[in-house]
Amino acid sequence: MAQVSINVQHEDFDAGAELDALSGNGAAGAVASFLGYVRGGDAGGILAMTLEHYPGMTERALADIVALAQERWSLLGVRVIHRVGRLLPGERIVFVGVAGSHRGEAFSACQFIMDYLKTQAPFWKKEETANGAHWVDARDSDDAALARWRP
């Protein structure tokens, strides 16, 4: 059985340590990962971003998403970390790491989990700019990214 770890937390995390943990049991031939950051410095001028979640449902939704990935691919390990609270540009928001025997399943499962997380897991972003704060709108491109995994 794959080792699965899911955390929703305020604190930052050590991406290197997460990758080591995924490869740690010696069975993995491949580890693929995704790291998401708070964007900064573009024309939008984001000063900070606050992430809200639905305690309980969010963890459950992430566990369901990882279980779906495990039905599709034979995985050796999955780690998902999503931060909540107020974050500044350049700070890490999300980590998804997948260990498998070969790169194909690791890459695919990592992308699958991110596409599902973006559209199904109850998190909401509020951006602060010089013009005030606003809730980020859901993007159609995220729904399109999800659609390609559906039969």
């Binding site: 639905y54 309980g56 109850p122 998190f123 909401w124 709108d137």
Partner: peptide, 26 residues
């Protein structure tokens, strides 16, 4: 009860119902 619902989903005594906009995490 912390599972995505549709209009037809049953509501019963002691349920926890949530309403929210489309999600924007990640």
């Amino acid at each position: 009860n912390q599972v995505l619902a549709s209009d037809a989903t049953t509501v019963a005594d002691k349920d926890e119902i949530a309403f929210f906009p489309p999600v924007t995490g990640g």
